[in-house]
């Protein structure tokens, strides 16, 4: 069973450029290593309007989250203070379509680290 759903689709080239710009603004152009940050998100979103995500990176001063396929890729930036019990946080985000969610961690040693995960946003219907 399938109801009518409005899909917001982004031209891929534009999406990539905006994401790269956001990353460059965060890193100041510094090199970004793969890994060293954990991004946890569901394989399939139960509801694209509220997708639970968790980010964690040992030694992180800040973690930025981006949604590469949204009209605007910015999602949130977490800054950890001296009383942060762990360098991790969870929130819920909006995803306009199936896309990669990206986390960039800035560690206290000044290095940058990156992780990404694809989250599928589906029309749904038709259970067994």
């Amino acid at each position: 069973g399938t109801g009518a759903v409005a899909l917001t689709l982004m031209p891929l080239g534009a999406a990539h450029a905006a994401t790269e710009d956001a990353i460059a603004a965060f890193t100041g152009g510094a090199e970004v290593a793969e890994g060293g940050v954990t991004l946890t998100a569901p394989e399939i979103a139960e509801n694209g309007n509220t997708v639970p995500i968790e980010v964690a990176a040992e030694g992180a001063a800040e973690i930025m989250v981006l949604a590469a396929g949204n009209p605007n890729p910015d999602v949130a930036t977490f800054k950890f203070g001296p009383l942060a019990g762990a360098r991790e946080a969870s929130t819920r985000i909006r995803l306009a379509q199936t896309q990669d969610v990206i986390a960039i961690a800035k560690l206290e040693d000044g290095t940058f680290h990156r992780a990404s995960q694809e989250v599928k946003v589906t029309i749904g219907g038709c259970g067994g």
Binding site: N72, D74, V75, A76, K79, G81, A84, A89, R94
Partner: peptide, 9 residues
């Protein structure tokens, strides 16, 4: 913790 939120929250 200090969080910057964008409209995608």
């Amino acid at each position: 913790i200090d969080v910057v939120l964008e409209p995608a929250i």
